[in-house]
């Protein structure tokens, strides 16, 4: 069974203006209904396969984002939703914003927009699903199982 048939989604606001957050939430509601792809919006990082982050990461959320990412089981994909999450956007020059999400954790799909439109976000999620399958395949072919021991891989 493919994992991409029912991936669960974790959303975190890393200092976004809220515009993208409500669009992420709106894409799970009847008009856009991302749940028809088997996606469930979960609040628990250990249940999640897709990590949707909105907003440029600030000083205080930096650790939170890292921690949530390390708690998610492999394989996992990260979607940067909105232009702030992609590269800092309008807040790039602010003293407390470090820039895009990719300054903290690796990002697989970038979905720009201010605010991101639900249609674009769904498109991004579908792209992410393909990446999720690829990652799963790659894991199968690896002799070493990359189990996450509290945020550190075995090699470390």
């Amino acid at each position: 069974m493919k994992i991409s048939k029912s991936p669960w989604l974790l959303h975190y606001d890393a200092s976004s203006c809220n515009g993208c957050d409500i669009e992420v939430l709106a894409s799970t509601t009847p008009r856009f209904d991302v749940e028809r792809f088997g996606i469930i919006n979960t609040g628990n990082p250990k249940h999640a396969d897709i990590f949707v982050i909105t907003g440029g990461v600030n000083e205080q959320t930096r650790q939170v984002v890292k921690q949530l990412y390390s708690q998610m089981p492999d394989p996992k994909v990260v979607i940067a939703a909105g232009i702030c999450a992609c590269d800092g956007g309008i807040f790039k020059d602010c003293y407390n914003v470090s820039g895009g999400v990719d300054t903290v954790i690796p990002v697989d799909v970038y979905v720009p927009g201010c605010a991101v439109k639900p249609e674009a976000l769904i498109d991004g999620v579908v792209k992410a699903l393909a990446i999720l399958d690829e990652k799963r395949e790659a894991m199968k072919n690896h002799a070493v199982c990359e189990v996450n021991y509290g945020g550190k891989t075995k090699e470390e």
Binding site: N58, E59, Q60, Y95, N96, S98
Partner: peptide, 8 residues
Amino acid sequence: YRTKEKAP
């Protein structure tokens, strides 16, 4: 507030 730069 924990800011990157103290008292910006």
